[in-house]
Amino acid sequence: MPYVDFLAIAQARYSLRRYDPRPVPREVLERCLEAARLAPSACNGQPWRFFVADREPMRGRLAEAAFGGPYRMNSFAAKAPVLVVVVSTPLPWTARIGQFIGGVPFAPCDAAVATEHLILQGASEGVGSCWLGFFNFKAVGSLLNLPGDLRPLFMVAMGYPPEGLGVPERVRRPAEEVWTFLQE
């Protein structure tokens, strides 16, 4: 089975902070969400929900709740045609036991993997994005009327890049600082 060149997608993807105003078609968003749904998770717990605002007035209300006051540094995201709120849901008991024993917070880790699937599928479709971890969690949770066991973790701003915007140069640490092959 042939696959798309994943490394090329990873190399081309960057945090987009300016958006063309045209909408992202629902079928494109659904493929991105399907990629997220298929992500692996501890004990197959799938501790995530994705709330998508791609139409007014909800998209504007979500942007207003998320990016006011001290969160204005991310107000560029209010211009994105799509805002996605990634919410953590409770883990199954097997994953909670593993989390307790190992001390690793599985739910946010799993939700992060699913979010990256969403973002990379978007990149493969020509949709840019910016992963946001700094927004008004409380106001967003309130707007979405989330029960106490659900918690916003991340937001993703999505949309098409403006005409003529190229991939910016990115600085990455050299490979020898990032990975090590273990020897006997």
Rank of each mutant, 00 (worst) to 15 (best):
Q46H: 05
A8F: 07
Y160I: 11
F50K: 06
E34D: 10
F135I: 07
R172D: 06
P105A: 01
S41M: 05
H117Q: 10
F135G: 01
P147R: 13
R18G: 06
S142T: 12
R55M: 03
A78M: 04
E27K: 09
L16M: 15
F76Y: 15
R151D: 10
P168H: 03
L29V: 00
T180I: 13
A175L: 15
G102H: 09
F181G: 14
G128N: 04
D149I: 11
V178R: 04
Q11D: 12
I101Q: 12
E184M: 14
Q183N: 11
A53I: 00
G159C: 02
D5Y: 09
P25G: 05
A53S: 06
A42K: 05
P147T: 09
P161L: 04
G45A: 13
G98A: 14
G148F: 07
Y160F: 13
G126H: 05
W131S: 03
F100G: 12
A10D: 11
P162N: 00
A8Y: 09
A80R: 13
P92V: 13
V104R: 08
P2C: 13
W131E: 00
A175Q: 11
A39L: 01
L7I: 10
E176T: 01
F100C: 10
Q121M: 15
W179L: 13
L143Y: 10
V82K: 13
P23V: 14
T89H: 02
Q46Y: 06
C130I: 01
C109R: 13
P92H: 14
G98M: 15
V86S: 05
P161F: 07
T89E: 11
E56N: 07
A107N: 02
R170I: 02
I119G: 08
